[in-house]
Design a protein around this nucleic acid. Structure first.
Lengths: 238, 238
DNA sequence: CCATAAACGGATATCGGGTGTCCGCTTCGT
DNA sequence: ACGAAGCGGACACCCGATATCCGTTTATGG
């Protein structure tokens, strides 16, 4: 991430004096705390929260990261890079549809435990940051995966990489749900309910005999059409 | 919130003096403005906003509705009642799956133009309000619809009314997306993209030959299991 | 071991925006 | 026309996030 250093820290002179050992360690502690706090409480956690969680003073945090955005950029940059790696791995699989499905499952499982990451993806990522780079990498891997899956005949006609991103958004929405507990157990562990809907959606994404084309290839054209929610395999006798 | 009257206004004595004509008219204007403003800008719009939009002073609004919640309750009560009516209508159709699909489509089309309504559904509805009543009515209609659709063999095994609600939440999530415009037109009309995903999900909801059971019937049990995202009709040669 | 610069801590000033009140003015209704 | 009911909207209040400032502590190397 050198060259276009857009990470948020004040640039040091080329002939940089080596910083104090403990200062470097603290920086790492802050990033770690950031990951934990943002993960658990979301982006709305304050840098004060992060500082306290790291066992450090607010001042220290603000000296190393000009503001919350700067820290978030580092924290979620790492996170996104790991997800990009998952996508890269998926490219090696034989069955592209399965690869896509498993990638989604792995990436979303990661997101399920990381509220901040989910919020970040929802509100989008500023161009020119390391985040944007990782996001782009993920997207391009997905494009290739989608293409392969379609060539292999496993994927419904008309599905694009953009769809994959939006499916992630949808699944994310059910993760964000209040998580009602029907009866007893006070355990507040993250619900696994989202997997249920991933299965449903993946089944809707598979190639079948006589599927009608999906509406709205990718833009918001043509508000014409009467029953856009009517689709495949009607239970008709035919 | 005494007795069943839970609408939010300060209760008047039983022998109520008829209010001034203009006062009543203003109340209606406020509700109308509330519907428009909350619909367009979401729940975070202030009562000041609503007042201004209604062409009235803030004081007037606060005299009639103690706070934003009170107004929202009236505004979205009406809205939810209309959706409940849609669900009731659906019960008359012959094919229950189609009825369900069309209900979803109609209700979501409504939601697509009403940001406030969507926000409200996302964050849930306080028990004891008129909203909760309407929500319950919708839910129970959905239950019947789901039951019928399953009996008719059109619906995948294990789908419940709660799923329907969560599907609405998922679709809502794509409505909330920033709505990127790929090229030219500056028109900011509400995207119809969500229909695409409704189709996909409905296809995943239809009964097919040899579908495996959905994971997690309704609660968050069993974190065991290795590939929960693997499902139907593998492109296997069989 | 001391001197000194670097790093730290955290109390606190600042800011911003939503909320809801208050009271002088206007309008309705009789 | 007169009093009560209703209205308007400036503004005081509140709350929480942000970021600074400076006295104190600590690493480092001479």
């Amino acid at each position: 991430m050198s060259g276009p250093t857009g990470t948020g820290e004040p640039a040091a002179p080329a002939t940089a004096r080596r910083p104090r050992r403990d200062a470097e360690a603290n920086r790492r502690r802050i990033v770690r705390a950031g990951r934990e706090v943002f993960g658990a409480r979301g982006l709305q956690a304050t840098l004060n929260d992060v500082a306290h969680h790291a066992g450090l003073g607010v001042g220290t945090v603000y000296r190393k990261f000009s503001d919350k955005r700067a820290l978030a950029e580092v924290v979620f940059g790492e996170e996104l890079d790991e997800i990009a790696a998952m996508a890269r791995d998926a490219l090696d699989r034989d069955d592209a549809f399965d690869a896509l499905a498993e990638f989604l499952e792995r990436a979303l499982a990661r997101a399920a435990h990381n509220r901040g990451l989910r919020e970040l993806m929802r509100q989008g990522v500023a161009e020119g940051t390391g985040l944007a780079r990782a996001r782009r990498e993920i997207h391009s891997h997905c494009e290739r995966l989608v293409e392969q899956a379609r060539d292999q005949g496993g994927l419904r006609e008309g599905v694009t990489a953009a769809d994959i991103a939006r499916i992630a958004v949808m699944i994310d929405a059910v993760m964000a749900l209040p998580a009602e507990q029907p009866a007893g157990q006070p355990t507040e562990q993250p619900s696994e309910l989202w997997r249920r809907y991933l299965v449903i959606i993946l089944d809707g994404l598979r190639a079948h005999r006589h599927q009608p084309p999906l509406p709205e290839p990718t833009e918001a054209r043509r508000p014409r059409r009467n029953h856009p929610a009517r689709s495949t395999t009607k239970p008709s006798t035919g």
